[in-house]
């Protein structure tokens, strides 16, 4: 049949076929044929951990009872909704409990093995390391006087989670610090961050409970080393 078609088709028609085949091939071979079809497909969950930390030895954790918005007064910062704060806290507690960690509700008296900070950022950030004063950055800290912490202001830093060092507006950060493991940075001393989970841009436009829950749960799912030794 092909032979017959070629035998009866004029040269210009064959040339058109050739052109059409070449064009079709080029269209099919487009460099980046994929596309984003909904905002949830831009959600990103990033976790970083200190490979020398012994997560199995952790038994208790303390956390603030709110999700603090960092850099709120900085130029360009956007006010983020508090709508999902209680959901984030509840999901964190659920995931920590499933991994055998116990929430210490009175760390002032009893202490805790690690501190889990929950924060959100309403600023698109082009740098990835930041050291605000502990006291000024965390109003809830107040005079907690946590035993073993030595008092004073502790350094807080954003996790340097990917090479680009860019935070999208609406990023939620969960940061676990070991108060027994101290680092000196410049003139300040701070507790070492041993685990960080960042949900990039999840509180930006279009945030839903499903997206937030999916992000928090995924941060723990992809951190299998977070498990207390029975």
């Amino acid at each position: 049949m092909i032979r017959k078609w070629f035998a009866t088709t004029p040269g210009w028609a064959r040339a058109q076929l050739l052109g059409a085949l070449a064009g079709l091939g080029l269209v099919l071979a487009a460099c980046y044929p994929g596309e984003i079809t909904n905002v949830a497909q831009t959600d990103l969950v990033v976790t970083v951990h200190d490979s020398s930390a012994n997560f199995g030895a952790i038994g208790t954790y303390a956390r603030p009872d709110s999700v603090v918005q960092l850099l709120k007064d900085s130029a360009g910062s956007v006010d983020l909704t508090d709508e999902f704060d209680s959901l984030i806290i509840a999901l964190v507690d659920t995931n920590m409990a499933r991994r055998g960690y116990t929430l210490e509700t009175d760390p002032e008296t009893n202490g805790a093995d690690v501190i889990l900070f929950l924060a959100k950022i309403g600023l698109e950030n082009s740098y990835y390391v930041y050291y605000p004063g502990w006291c000024s950055g965390w109003g809830w800290w107040g005079g907690w006087g946590y035993p073993g912490w030595g008092g004073g202001c502790w350094g807080w830093y954003y996790p340097g989670w990917v090479g680009s060092g860019t935070y999208e507006v609406g990023t939620v950060i969960m940061a676990m610090m070991d108060p027994e493991k101290l680092e000196t940075v410049g003139d300040s001393v701070r507790a070492a961050m041993i685990w960080t989970g960042a949900l990039s841009g999840i509180l930006a436009g279009g945030a839903t409970e499903n997206r937030v829950a999916s992000g928090v749960n995924q941060a723990f799912t992809q951190s299998p080393y977070l498990r207390a030794t029975p």
């Binding site: 460099c31 980046y32 994929g34 596309e35 984003i36 949830a40 497909q41 831009t42 959600d43 990103l44 969950v45 990033v46 976790t47 970083v48 490979s51 340097g160 989670w161 990917v162 090479g163 990039s200 995924q218 992809q222 951190s223």
Partner: peptide
């Protein structure tokens, strides 16, 4: 899927991905 040690940074990253 989750990418471990994303770009050599030590970070584990998950999210919808297009790979080419």
């Amino acid at each position: 899927s989750t990418i471990t040690n994303f770009g050599g940074t030590g970070a584990d990253v998950s999210g919808f991905q297009h790979r080419y």
